[in-house]
Design a protein around this nucleic acid. Structure first.
Lengths: 158, 158
DNA sequence: CCTTTCAGTTGCGATATGCAACTTAATAGA
DNA sequence: TCTATTAAGTTGCATATCGCAACTGAAAGG
């Protein structure tokens, strides 16, 4: 097997590709950011993000299809529709925050507004970091990519 | 000020938008995933990801422009060019891993290969989570979005 | 009724994407 | 030295997606 074939096989099955199919389109992250910050209605998303109406319609539909947002008609005013995050959608918070912290650090150069704080201590949340199973911070040189089967063999051997 | 105007003002300045300008295009994350996994050369990225050559060329150029990849000609073989992550690029690891873990959990439904492990303990890295400044895990209901100025005022008052 | 609001849809031009073939420079082999 | 192959793109062209502005249709509000 060539090196290229090895690599292809190794990366073909990866959660990143799967995730990007669902949230990888141009406006999806910004719509989700809006949802995390309390936007609920079509017109709110539209005026707030300045996104084209047809694209917004399409993206909201897609996010609903994939179970990231829930779409409920407002029983009090049947013109209105409410979009809100599902558990699956809420679980994207680490992605959004990592991205945001990176953007703050390397692009905009300063922390953005509003800040996400611990409700009780009023301290801003910590930077997102990679940690070992027992909670130590890891830098890239403390880690290694391992084929799952090789890892299982290591474990058996031990 | 209307609710919409409030919201617009609140979200205009946000690291997510800044980050997406740089890494938000279709193939960028997958190229970065490749780079983290050791891909270095144009042909490697191309055959591995199955991306069109012109798009790959364009994306690599963009990532280099933005200082996420470095482009070095290989001194031993001057046909070859090496692309490798800069510090700025390496600092995207939390984003990639959050995305991957989300994809594994909610889309593909199983862990992908290869696994990123602690080099010494051989344990897979921990799930990416949001933490307080002192390291406690936080769920969404433990957190709150606060305007930076309001937060400063709170701190002064204390 | 008549007007406004909300959540879209439609038409159409501007971009971006994808495929295949071509180019250019460098290296490897006979 | 001559030829074939490899690496890293570029070019042309067809298709798909995006973005704007205008339109629609149903439901409130006055």
């Amino acid at each position: 097997m060539s090196r290229a074939e090895q690599l292809r096989e190794v990366f073909a099955e990866c959660g990143i590709g799967a995730a990007l199919e669902v949230v990888g389109e141009r406006w999806s992250f910004l719509i989700l950011r809006g949802a995390f910050n309390g936007l609920r209605h079509f017109e709110e998303f539209q005026t707030n993000l300045g996104i084209a109406r047809n694209i917004l319609s399409n993206r909201l539909g897609r996010l609903v299809e994939h179970g990231i947002l829930r779409r409920d008609p407002d029983p009090a005013d049947r013109r209105k529709v409410t979009y809100r995050l599902t558990d699956k959608g809420r679980d994207l918070l680490p992605v959004l925050l990592s991205l945001r912290q990176w953007g703050e650090r390397w692009i905009s150069g300063h922390p953005s507004n509003p800040v996400l704080v611990d409700r009780y201590t009023r301290q801003p949340i910590a930077p997102m970091i990679v940690q070992s199973a027992d909670g130590r911070p890891l830098s890239l040189r403390d880690m290694e990519w391992v084929d799952r089967e090789d890892l299982d063999r290591e474990t058996d051997a031990a």
